[in-house]
Amino acid sequence: MKRIFLFVATNLAVMLVMSVVLSLLGVNRYLTGSGLNLGSLMVYSLVVGFTGAFISLLMSKPMAKWSTGAHVIEAPSSSTELWLVDTVKRLSDRAGIAMPEVAIYEGEPNAFATGAFKNSALVAVSTGLLESMTKDEVEAVLGHEIAHVANGDMVTLTLIQGVVNTFVVFLARVVGYLIDKAVFRNSDDRGPGIGYMVTVFVCEILFGILASIIVAWFSRYREFRADAGSAKLLGSPQPMVNALARLGGLEPAATLPQNFRSFGINGGGSGFAALFSSHPPIEQRIAALRNAQ
């Protein structure tokens, strides 16, 4: 679950830095000084929106290792580590991808996969998961994570994040320009005024909240798809059903950093919070697997 804090935080931090740098270079003043140049604004928005998303993607694997304290298994030192590496190898071969790095980290039951490229990914499981599940259930969880990698979910999530970031930056500045011109100033011979800056700031927060709902919806969709992928790799949905049922009876995995929660196996929310949840409720995932039988 650590992936959302690092992915989103890094993404937003880079967006902020890029926005400040471009503003200091006079880009905002150029865009609004003598009328809004929509073409230039779109280029500006693309640069700011996608830069953060792609830097977050490229940093995802080292950040995941650092934030979880994950230990990559270079040479298995126990029967559990040997079984874990062999299982990931077998599943990745079935999925047609290169063998990911395999890691273990201390924490409550959870697992995640990350990495910028399909053939150089990382699959990590927690000690809590290994201790609380049977081998068949752990294998199902590993199949779920391998399915994420094979589906290219990390790249797709990055592209979606970049697109929504772009529209947040673009629309916030369009609204800011219109309000600044209509309410706060009467002429176009000056650069952006205080109305523009305040409006852009407020709109980026509001539009960012709406954008996060879109990203969370896709994240939930890919969880269903990864569950189905695990069932396909194992030849039956029952191991994944059993793994999810066991996870449903365990404590939430709060040890993953917030920015990595969308990459974990466990999660979910209810009520209004479900709109922002990266994972569907466990019971919905189990029902989807059973209905697919």
Score class of each variant (00 low, 15 high):
G69D: 03
D180T: 15
F207E: 04
G69W: 12
E74F: 00
F50C: 03
R220P: 07
Y44T: 04
Y196I: 09
T134L: 10
L130N: 05
T156N: 12
I55C: 05
R185A: 11
L178N: 05
K181V: 04
S219N: 12
E106V: 14
L142P: 01
V198K: 05
P257W: 06
F7L: 06
V183T: 13
M133Q: 08
S187W: 04
L22R: 08
M59G: 00
F207N: 09
Q284W: 11
E251C: 01
R285N: 06
L22H: 06
R90S: 05
F54T: 01
L46K: 03
L58E: 04
L12N: 06
S67E: 04
G208T: 07
A147V: 12
V17E: 04
K135L: 02
A64I: 09
R285G: 02
A231V: 09
L244E: 06
N186P: 00
A226R: 13
N110A: 09
V241W: 08
R90T: 06
V17C: 03
A121S: 13
L129H: 05
K135M: 03
T114S: 10
K2C: 01
G35P: 02
N28H: 10
L206R: 15
G249F: 08
M59S: 03
E223L: 12
M154V: 15
A98V: 01
E106D: 14
A274Q: 10
E81C: 00
K61C: 00
T51F: 09
A274V: 11
F117T: 04
S126D: 07
L6S: 13
L31S: 06
G193P: 07
A243I: 13
A211W: 10
E223D: 12
S34G: 10
T32F: 03
D188I: 13
M18E: 06
L233E: 02
V27A: 05
N11K: 09
N259T: 10
E139H: 11
A245Q: 14
Q238T: 12
R3S: 14
